[in-house]
Amino acid sequence: MAEQTSAQLDVAELLVEALNLEDIAAADIDPQEPLFGTGLGLDSIDALEIALAISQKYGVQMQADDQNTRNAFANLATLTDFIHAHATK
């Protein structure tokens, strides 16, 4: 597994908290592993929960018809980059 940056660890902790992923340690989420489908196995309700948690913590709103959002949801690394490019708080 690729090593997490501290910014990625923050986002990983947000995911574990928002999605009740009690059986996963934030530090164990591979930054390159897909979040949806085969990797962490997240679904559309999770996408909604993640979007909500991110808007509350970082002031970033996600949109589905935006290619950036689709790319952002690829893995922990892309999500962290997306947040830091758009954060307003």
Partner: peptide, 10 residues
């Protein structure tokens, strides 16, 4: 069929 609040708002 929309999911995210901002999409729904728009």
């Amino acid at each position: 069929r929309l999911l995210f609040p901002q999409d729904i708002q728009q």
